[in-house]
């Protein structure tokens, strides 16, 4: 039987500590995928911090979209972490365009097209995603992996729906350019 998020939170508030464990398990993969793509090796720590913040702020949660709320917490913690590491870092900065970024310079994917197996495909696409500027990358991940609407994404990024849409367009275009040589269907 599927229990909805608000019911689990209500159970947690009533004293059932396992209800929170069920929520953490439910969103383990998508939340971690978001963090792993947004940060450079801090995903574990940020995952823990996000859930600790959820526990602390659970009283301020007002039966909204729990997953959107969870991602908003993760987003704020991620941005704080990035700013702490590199106070001058621009969230719109391109990787490798001369500007100093907190992410290591990631090599462009180079593979033998005739022997492209699933592992290599996964590696390529994930490397390509990491080359996107942070804000565009975030929109792409939130829309693709997390399935959030543009309205929710705009709320998380504190921007307009049109800006979120434009970022998605740019990110798709860049990914298409990076990957088109390896995948005929993207030509």
């Amino acid at each position: 039987m599927k229990i909805n998020d608000n019911e689990l939170i209500e159970r947690y508030k009533q004293g059932d500590a396992d209800a929170l464990g069920m929520l953490a398990e439910k969103y383990r993969r998508p939340l971690f995928a978001y963090l792993i793509n947004m940060t450079n090796g801090d995903a574990d720590e940020l995952f823990q911090e996000t859930w600790f913040r959820v526990i602390k702020k659970i009283d301020s949660y007002k039966n909204q979209n729990f997953y959107g709320w969870l991602i908003r917490i993760a987003h704020n913690l991620t941005i704080d972490r990035i700013r702490k590491k590199k106070p001058d870092y621009s969230l719109d900065a391109e990787i490798g365009d001369g500007e100093t970024t907190w992410i290591e310079t990631i090599p462009a994917p180079t593979v033998d097209k005739d022997h492209l197996d699933n592992k290599e495909i996964a590696k390529n696409i994930n490397i390509a995603i990491k080359t996107l500027p942070l804000k565009q990358r975030e929109v792409f991940i939130l829309r693709t992996y997390e399935g959030l609407s543009f309205k929710e994404i705009a709320k998380i990024q504190k921007t307009s729906i049109n800006t979120a849409l434009a970022r998605m367009q740019y990110s798709l275009e860049k990914l298409r350019k990076i990957l088109k040589e390896d995948y005929n269907e993207l030509q």
Partner: peptide
């Protein structure tokens, strides 16, 4: 692109 990303989600 989106399908490829979902299929290969970490």
């Amino acid at each position: 692109i989106m399908d490829l990303a979902i299929e290969n989600m970490p």
